[in-house]
């Protein structure tokens, strides 16, 4: 019961942080650049995802190891979230390395934006598919 609460809270944290990340990045889609409080909020939210996503992955996946397994939709959105989250974090991590050149960094940041948006979609989709499962869970 406690684990389920932690799992749900973790996902809630990841979901909210993802929304914040997407929201704060929105102006850059029209040619602006990050700075000031917007970037600060983006960085703070990224910390939540960096910690929360692997934690949620562990909690959710270990929960699914025991039968019954999740619905197919739920599983697909889960892995989509994990994969896109991994790539989002990795693309930013590469930018933080002191060996990334400007042209690579520009490409990585561009990629980071697109894959981050994909992650936001995956997170919302995962929430939607979870909702379909949860009533059934409660019926067990």
């Amino acid at each position: 019961m406690m684990l389920a609460l932690i799992r749900r809270l973790t996902f809630a944290g990841v979901l909210i942080a993802t929304v914040v990340l997407f929201g704060t990045s929105l102006p850059t889609w029209w040619g602006g650049h990050f700075g000031g409080y917007r970037l600060l909020a983006h960085m703070a939210a990224s910390g939540v995802v960096v910690i929360g996503l692997p934690l949620y992955a562990i909690l959710r996946w270990t929960d699914w190891l025991s039968a019954p397994i999740p619905t197919r939709g739920s599983a697909w959105t889960f892995w989509a979230l994990i994969l896109s989250g991994f790539l989002t974090i990795a693309s930013m991590y590469a930018c933080m390395m002191p060996s990334t050149t400007t042209s690579w960094m520009v490409a990585l940041i561009d990629f980071h934006g697109w894959i981050g948006a994909t992650m936001a979609v995956a997170a919302i989709a995962h929430l939607a598919t979870l909702r379909r499962v949860d009533p059934k869970q409660s019926a067990t």
Binding site: V50, P54, A57, W61, A90
Partner: peptide, 12 residues
Amino acid sequence: VAASLVVLGVMM
């Protein structure tokens, strides 16, 4: 971040 990536990678 590195630890997070390792965990996510292992999970995948």
